[in-house]
């Protein structure tokens, strides 16, 4: 039973860039892992314009479905105080990438496995941006799980064009595209489905 009222959210603002992003933030897969996939996309506003000051965080299971996570995403050098980068071996399940001047972002990761028997795998995404007063959650499903997504009791009940915003598309071998649109407009992009966890 919840008793304490929560601290309200506030926007990440425009100036997080020297504080939150870290080198290798999008390189979730251990360096050189042969199963690495690339997921990239753009973040767009309601006018279809790219958002150059958004920040995405990814949380996902490992290929074996393991959700334990582990430290080391943003390893630091105790000598210089600088960033060491990941150790190149461990899979932490966490990534963080700012959008570039074109609103673009890229992560390299391993395909998530089912986090419990029979579960459909996905990557969880948390979106922050200047102008966004409270972060948004969405999910990236890979195209090979489209049928399982359509069978999901909640997400499968969405109109197909809405549900499609949760599906990455295959660009070419092992490279996927996932655009995030914060607001629907007149353009060709549907507003991304965002999730609440009551």
């Amino acid at each position: 039973m919840s008793t304490l009222p929560p601290t309200p959210s506030q926007t990440v603002g425009p100036f997080y860039g020297y504080a939150l992003p870290f080198p290798g933030g999008g390189d979730i897969a251990p360096a050189g892992h042969p199963d690495t996939i690339t997921i990239r996309g753009v973040v767009l506003d309601g006018a279809g314009q790219p958002i150059p000051d958004a920040l995405l965080e990814i949380w996902q299971a490992g290929p074996d479905g393991d959700l334990t996570g582990r430290p080391g995403s943003m390893r630091r050098d105790p000598v210089t105080g600088g960033h060491l980068g990941r150790n190149g071996v461990d899979f932490t399940g966490f990534g963080r990438v700012p959008t570039d001047a074109d609103g673009g972002w890229v992560v390299r990761t391993l395909p998530p496995g089912p986090h419990r028997p029979g579960a459909t795998p996905y990557l969880s995404v948390c979106v922050f941006a200047r102008g966004l007063l409270h972060h948004l959650f969405t999910r990236i499903y890979l195209p090979e799980h489209a049928d399982a997504l359509a069978a999901d009791p909640v997400l499968g009940a969405l109109p197909p064009e809405r549900r499609a915003t949760l599906l990455a598309t295959r660009e070419h071998d092992r490279t996927y595209r996932f655009d995030i649109r914060l607001q629907g407009g007149d353009g060709p992009h549907e507003e991304t489905v965002f999730l609440a966890f009551p």
């Binding site: 949380w59 996570g69 932490t92 102008g131 999730l195 009551p198």
Partner: peptide, 23 residues
């Protein structure tokens, strides 16, 4: 131009992976 117009979709599954998090 940076807020969704559609209502958020409520996920009530008590075993979703979002109930874990990075370490």
């Amino acid at each position: 131009l940076r807020h969704p117009k559609q209502p958020l979709v409520a996920i009530e599954d008590p075993e979703v992976m979002e109930l874990t998090g990075p370490v």
